[in-house]
Simulated assay, not measured.
Amino acid sequence: MKIVSQPEELAQFRQTLQGSVGFVPTMGALHNGHLSLIKRSIAENDHTVVSLFVNPTQFLPGEDLSTYPRRQEADLKLCRLAGVDAVFTPQATAMYSIEEPILCAPDTLGYMLEGLRRPGHFDGVLRVVLKLFNLTQPAHAYFGKKDAQQLYLIQNMVRTLFLPVSIVPCDIVREEDGLALSSRNVYLSPDERQEALKLSKALKHASRLVIQKEFHAKVLERTMQETLAPLHVEYARVLRRDFTPLERVELGNTLIAIAAYVGSTRLIDNLWI
């Protein structure tokens, strides 16, 4: 497995690869959710490249950039054991310059839900993903459905900028008790870990109502708010998968999304119906 830290070195290495390349962009602190993306890429491509980069442009002032989990040695070992061909581990100074074009998320979608409380967050996400795509030139890039809004915005960027890459959405990986895997779960105390289960429970309650033919979005949202109490809930919404509002569930085109604070840790989760 090749480890590269300079963009130029990665671009040169990419030119030596024959066949299809799968790419898994991550911020490190890898868990089984990341590993599921990596395994799928390895199964579907001739080569797989993984990036480990805590991207500063997607963090707002006061967020956890400085404390975000970093376990590069363990991450590299996991990638090596999985059979990854190359891992990209750049520094921010190698990825960004003082004067460069800025890519902005769409005005509406980039500033709702996740973007409402984190204005500019998706600008940073799209900016780094575009750079990584240019360097790795993948046939396929793998993203988890847990970051549903990010996933949709990246798909939109690929479509509107005519990028020659196929985005592969991958299902959420959960603990046995239902908690969605996240690098930020390490922030949770044992008591908070139990409280965090309210996110998946709220989604299960909403899903159960849909199975019982309750399709009104407001009813589902109210049920989720009740289940999530007393957590500080940023949103518990029922939307179309393109993030436009709806009044009634549309089977096959509905996203139920939650963001809530468990203690000081902000967690997100969702369900695709």
Score class of each variant (00 low, 15 high):
N55S: 09
T57K: 08
N32W: 01
P25M: 04
A29N: 13
A43W: 03
F53T: 04
T26L: 10
S41Q: 07
V54E: 00
T26R: 11
E44L: 15
F23V: 02
L37G: 11
N45G: 14
G28T: 05
A29S: 15
E44P: 09
S41T: 12
T26F: 13
T48W: 11
V24M: 04
Q58M: 08
L52C: 11
L30H: 02
N55V: 09
R40S: 15
N32K: 11
F53R: 04
F23C: 04
I38P: 14
N45P: 15
V49S: 03
H31Q: 08
A43T: 06
V49P: 12
T26N: 11
H34Y: 11
T57C: 05
H47I: 13
L60K: 07
H47M: 12
I42V: 15
F23G: 02
P25Y: 04
A29K: 03
V54L: 08
Q58D: 00
A29F: 06
V21E: 00
I42L: 15
Q58S: 03
F59G: 01
H47S: 14
F59P: 07
L60Q: 10
F53E: 00
L52T: 02
V21G: 00
S36F: 13
R40P: 14
T26D: 09
V24N: 05
N55F: 07
K39W: 09
L60G: 15
I38A: 11
F23H: 01
T57V: 13
F23M: 03
V49Q: 01
R40H: 15
D46E: 12
T48N: 05
I38M: 15
L30C: 05
L30K: 03
E44I: 13
S41F: 10
P56Q: 00
L30W: 03
N55I: 12
V21T: 13
V21K: 00
Q58H: 05
F53Y: 12
L37C: 11
V54M: 03
K39D: 12
S51N: 04
G33T: 04
V24S: 06
P56G: 04
V54Q: 01
G33V: 06
K39A: 14
T26H: 10
L35E: 06
V50T: 08
V24Y: 05
Q58Y: 09
A29D: 02
F53A: 06
V54F: 09
L35S: 04
S20F: 04
F59V: 05
V24L: 06
D46N: 15
Q58W: 10
I42E: 05
I38L: 12
V54T: 01
F59A: 01
H47A: 14
F53L: 11
A43I: 05
V24D: 00
R40Y: 11
P25F: 09
I42C: 11
T48D: 01
G22C: 11
F23W: 01
I42A: 09
S20G: 10
F23K: 01
V50C: 11
A43C: 10
D46G: 14
